[in-house]
Design a protein around this nucleic acid. Sequence first.
DNA 1: GGTCAAAGCTTGAGTTACTGAAGCACTCGG
DNA 2: CCGAGTGCTTCAGTAACTCAAGCTTTGACC
Lengths: 152, 152
Amino acid sequence: MGSTSTTTVPTNAELMEALAAVGAAYFQDFAAAAARHGLSSSQAKALGSVQEPVPMRALAGRLGCDASNVTGIVDRLESLGLANREAAAGDRRVKIVVITAEGREILNRIRGEMARTHQAFEAMTDEQRIALHSICGQVLPVLAGRAGGSLQ
Amino acid sequence: MGSTSTTTVPTNAELMEALAAVGAAYFQDFAAAAARHGLSSSQAKALGSVQEPVPMRALAGRLGCDASNVTGIVDRLESLGLANREAAAGDRRVKIVVITAEGREILNRIRGEMARTHQAFEAMTDEQRIALHSICGQVLPVLAGRAGGSLQ
DNA sequence: GGTCAAAGCTTGAGTTACTGAAGCACTCGG
DNA sequence: CCGAGTGCTTCAGTAACTCAAGCTTTGACC
């Protein structure tokens, strides 16, 4: 069969190359879909990170950037009517970003319109989907720095 | 063995979520390693795209951005001594970006210092490496738009 | 209760990334 | 030659991003 017969184990460099290429292509598909709705990729990424209400500070953590940067991104999302700032109960310093109904709709539309990504999924067998999902789940905690061993 | 026993096939939404999370984490590891060497992620990504000499126009295609943008990025790489512009034989309009020895060294150093990514690879079994590499190779042409069917 | 360090957000200055339109240099088909 | 088209740069103008400084609020300590 078209068994993915390569019995040879890829080197780290080969894996990195492959992962980078797939990651970049995925990201471009995402950015293109977002642009069709007038959003930059940063804005769309932020929108996807506030499906649950999130304080500004925590959002900066999720986006991996400075808190002062998030101020501007949320400003623009707010002026587009896609998110709002709400006061946090119990700590008046904190502002919580909440996605609006319109924001949620646009987010879903963007995800639905990532045509190449959906095509790529369709090109996979069930075994491959299961394997990929399992690998991602296993690897994510390490990659995101929530691993058991070390820290930093 | 610790067979990742989930026999249930993940939905597209679940796969997308997992892929996005892994992609984002990988990218942050990359950006952090680049920053340690004084490079922005755009600059490092460009540097990785010129391991082979590439005309400006083609580089814009690889990076998925406008050609005028590449001018600035290569300007900065050039002023850092990591790449050079050379004239193309046969067409004097074209300028070809060539990585320098120092550029290549920094690129290798960045890749070697992506600690989380390497940890993630170490957390995988040989079967998983083979599966992941195979899936990436199979899916990339579709995701990058070089699929057999349609075009654009 | 008052004081002070620290946390959360914003503002301001400055660089980079990015786009679109315009411009210059060059190529190639008539 | 001349004109259409290609490749790169330049020029606005906006968004993304960082660092330092500022303001408000909190919480601990006295």
